[in-house]
Every structure is written in C-alpha cells, then in structure tokens.
Write a protein that binds this DNA or RNA. Structure first.
Lengths: 194, 194
DNA sequence: TGTACATCAGTGAACGCGCGTTCACTGATGTAC
DNA sequence: TGTACATCAGTGAACGCGCGTTCACTGATGTAC
C-alpha cells in the first residue's frame, strides 16, 4: 500500500513546499517538514534537489515560469497595461507561495538559467505592451511610465496580500486593480480604462 | 575597562539588530548573534526584551515611529503627495533594516500599542495631504487615488531596495521618486510635479 | 559622611530541540542478451 | 520467456551545530537614614 517508490516525488515535494510557504513563509521552510508532508524520509530530498537552496531555486523557477506564461497571455492580441497588471495581481494571489518566495532572492539562486529565461519572457511581454501606448499615454519618458506601472502593480499586489487594503477596497482584487491602474492612465485619449 | 554594566545596552542592542537585519534579513536575526555584536552575554537580552518577539516588536515600533515623524514633517505646511512619497522612499533607504522588518509582521506583534499609535500618525499625515488635492487631481473616487499613491510609493521603495530598478533609473532615488509620482499626477492643473 | 539594604543589570552554565547534510544501505525498476 | 546486472529512488541512523529560553548567581548602583 505504501510503495517503496513514490512515483512522482519531485512535484509532490514542490507542492508541499508551496503549502508550507503559504503557512509559515519562505524563510521558515524546512526540508524535514517537507519530507513529513510528503510522507517520505527526509534524506530523499537530497536526491531530487541536492540541498535546500536547490529546492527553493527549482520552486522559484516554476513560479517565474508560471508568471511569464500569464504575462504572455495577457500581452498577446491587443494587450493593454491593465491586462498585464490584472494578470500580475492574479498570479500573486493564486500563487501566493511562489510569489512570496520570488520576492526573497536571498533564499535561492537568482542566476539560475531557468529563472533568467522566464524573467526575460516577462520583460518581453511588458515591453510589447508598453510599445502599444500612445505618446499621450506614455508621457515624455517611456522609462518613467514603465517604472510607474511596475511599481504600482507590484506595490498593489504586495499590499493586497498583506491585507493592508481590504478595509478600503473591498474583496475583489481584479476590480480594485482595474480601478488603481485606470487611475494611473486616467483622462488620456484612448485610455485603457475607457 | 569592560564594566559589568553596559550603561546603555538596550539602544545598543537595537542598533546591533538593525545591522544584523541589513546583513542577513529580519528572519535570520538571532538573539545570540546580537549579544555577540554588543559584547554581552546572550542571557542579557531577556532582561530588556523578554524574548525574541519582544525585541523585534520594540524595533518595529521604533521604525514606525521614525516613519511617522518623517511623514508628519513632509505633510506639514503645504505638503504635497510628492513630498510624502519622497520621504517614504527616503525612509526605506535610510532605515532599510527597520523597513524590512516592518514588512514582516509575522515576526513581531503588530497589535503593539506603540506600533498602532505610530501607524495612526502616518495615516493621519497621508489623509491630510490627500485632502489638499483638487477634484481634478483626485478623480472620481478619493479612495482610489489614495490606494494608487500608496501602492506606487510602496512598490517603488521595495523594487528600489531589491535593485530591480537601478539599471533603468540610475542611482538617485529622490529624483526617480519625483519622476514616477509626477507621472501618477501628470497633466493635471496645479499638478504637484509642476 | 557612612552604612545597610533593596533593586537593577548582566553572567555563565545547562536544557532540550529541530535543523541540514552525509553515509552506507536496500528495495525496485529497467535494459541487454 | 528468463536471467544477470546496472541504475535509480528512497531509507534510517548518525553527525555536529546554533538556537531560544531558563536558572541560580553575582556585581554594581542608588536610596534611606
């Protein structure tokens, strides 16, 4: 009934890691706790990930991959900044464990190739959306608009997850994101909030 | 030469904690490491803070107090959202250890009275500045403008500390903050960036 | 000015704990012939 | 179809470590008279 070989231990460990991070944060993640969650000897983890940093790097890579997928989906077609921001906030909420880990680059190897590739895909998706904006929307310096959108979106996602905004903005993160990003591009001809 | 009584151990420990957090992050802070930094027995810490959470609560309280001071200074007179944002980003950079800890409420007691009082002062400073804005600046819903400013400022400070923006925005955080917040309120009559 | 005494600040040893990693191993799987 | 053998996946015991907390204590300070 309990076979010697788990069969798909690696993905099971990554899933257990997500649960553990959601419960206790990425810094408190323990190899032994993960092994317990997966019902496996704690020495088994070495086999798949080498060490703790290896496991977290794999999980962060998975997260960056999922985020890049979501951003590419949002950017395709006539993707607007609003769509990108919504998909970013949705990712942070739906994949909170991954998101929290990704914001702690001290815990994994940020130079990992899989991570770098996924980050690059995300950057490309953002660039392609920014390029569709009119000069009126983008202002004098395109870099500033880019930074403002990044900061606003990341800050909003972070504050939302910290429950810092619920008392003011209710419980619908997508509507709230649309409102806040719409404010950033308000009153412009061809505004994405229109 | 090494007196039995330190004389001002409590502030010395808080200062050591800031150094330790800047080096290794708030989650990795250790009582024994702090004692070593202050040149004192590790049991001495209990005397001043009770336990680890007590120490971190005291340090977070100090941080919220400093931030509230800075925000009140920025809000006084004809304080504009821009001034508030600049002082927030400056606080995050100048008091990085405090700032990182404050963003980890799982590590301290967020219901601590001193913290609550300081947070309230900060909220009041933000409100007083938002009230000075014209209807054109604030848009239909004042809460949205408020959230946008919070999210933008917090996100910018966070990304700046993570070095995510330096390649795009140079090395002057105040100028960069002014540019990004100016973008949020751009093109408005009486715009604070003017 | 001097003495007694309470309070305060810091010591040092000890505790039990969970951790990451290493190691020789065993059971299961898959491939070659 | 059957056998030998290499490879893979997971085990369980052991290691040394740094940690937070507790405890009875000692040295220093300050106050009362």
């Amino acid at each position: 009934v309990t076979p010697y070989h788990h069969g798909s231990l690696r993905p099971a460990l990554l899933a257990a890691a997500v649960d553990a991070i959601v419960e206790h944060g990425p810094g408190a993640l323990s190899m032994r706790d993960l092994a317990r969650r997966a019902g496996v000897s704690h020495a088994a983890l070495t086999h798949h990930f080498g060490d703790r940093a290896g496991l977290l790097t794999a999980l962060a890579g998975e997260g960056y991959g999922l985020l890049a997928d979501a951003m590419e989906r949002a950017a395709s077609g006539q993707g607007q900044p609003l769509d990108l921001a919504v998909s970013y906030v949705r990712f942070a909420i739906d994949h909170r464990g991954h998101f929290e880990l990704m914001n702690r680059p001290d815990l994994y190897n940020p130079a990992d190739e899989r991570i770098a590739v996924a980050q690059h895909r995300g950057e490309a998706a953002l660039s392609s959306v920014m390029r569709t904006l009119t000069p009126e929307q983008v202002g004098e310096d395109p870099v500033i608009a880019d930074m403002a959108l990044r900061s606003l979106t990341h800050g909003f996602a972070t504050l939302w997850l910290q429950q810092s905004l619920t008392s003011l903005l209710g419980d619908d993160p997508e509507a709230a994101t649309r409102a806040v990003v719409g404010f950033l591009f308000r009153g412009q001809p061809g505004s994405p909030s229109a």
